[in-house]
């Protein structure tokens, strides 16, 4: 679960019950995995992972010590979803162009058959539920890096600094 936390505006539920900010009652949070040095005398000295959700409205921070019953659901706006789909199509076009994948993947992406896109991108997948465009985009970008078509560090920096406004023009420059 911890790896699902991703600094995106999210709704959070504990034991399937949505949580609201204790101060302002809003329900949109930025989730973080946070670490602190923890020393327990005569027991051990170690690194303790916590999970911190910050309310986007008032800034109130809620901390969790255990995430097994916590579900984080990133909020995907229509604009963000469309940007994800455009970036996915660009990434797939580049992979097809470089002959790293069959061109049927483009048709599947246009028809939003993302599970089939995922299977083509990554032959070994044990995911059975419906795949979102974002998961396919992450794997497509990873494939572009693996095949040395794009610089992995540059992609990583753009994702961290600029998100979708930056990924789109970056990918377009590789389309011949």
């Amino acid at each position: 679960m911890a790896k699902d936390l991703n600094l995106e505006e999210s709704h959070i539920a504990i034991l399937d019950r949505p949580i609201n900010c204790l101060f302002c009652e809003h329900d949109v949070f930025i989730p973080y995995v946070t670490y602190k040095n923890e020393v327990e005398p005569e027991m051990y000295a170690g690194i303790q992972a916590n999970y911190t959700a910050v309310c986007t409205h008032c800034g109130s921070a809620i901390q969790f010590g255990e995430m097994s019953n916590v579900h984080v659901n990133p909020i995907i706006t229509e604009a963000k979803l469309q940007a994800q789909k455009r970036c996915l199509l660009l990434a797939l076009q580049i992979l097809v162009q470089e002959k790293k994948i069959d061109d049927t993947v483009l048709t599947l992406a246009e028809e939003e058959q993302y599970f089939k896109v995922m299977v083509l991108l990554k032959s070994r997948t044990n995911q059975v539920e419906e795949m979102p465009a974002l998961s396919c985009l992450a794997i497509a970008l990873s494939q572009l890096s693996t095949h040395n078509i794009v610089d992995a560090m540059q992609v990583h920096r753009i994702i961290l600094d600029e998100s979708y406004p930056g990924i789109e023009p970056f990918l377009k420059q590789f389309i011949k």
Partner: peptide
């Protein structure tokens, strides 16, 4: 201050 990047 809470570290976000794992020190490990």
């Amino acid at each position: 201050y809470l570290d976000i990047v794992s020190p490990n």
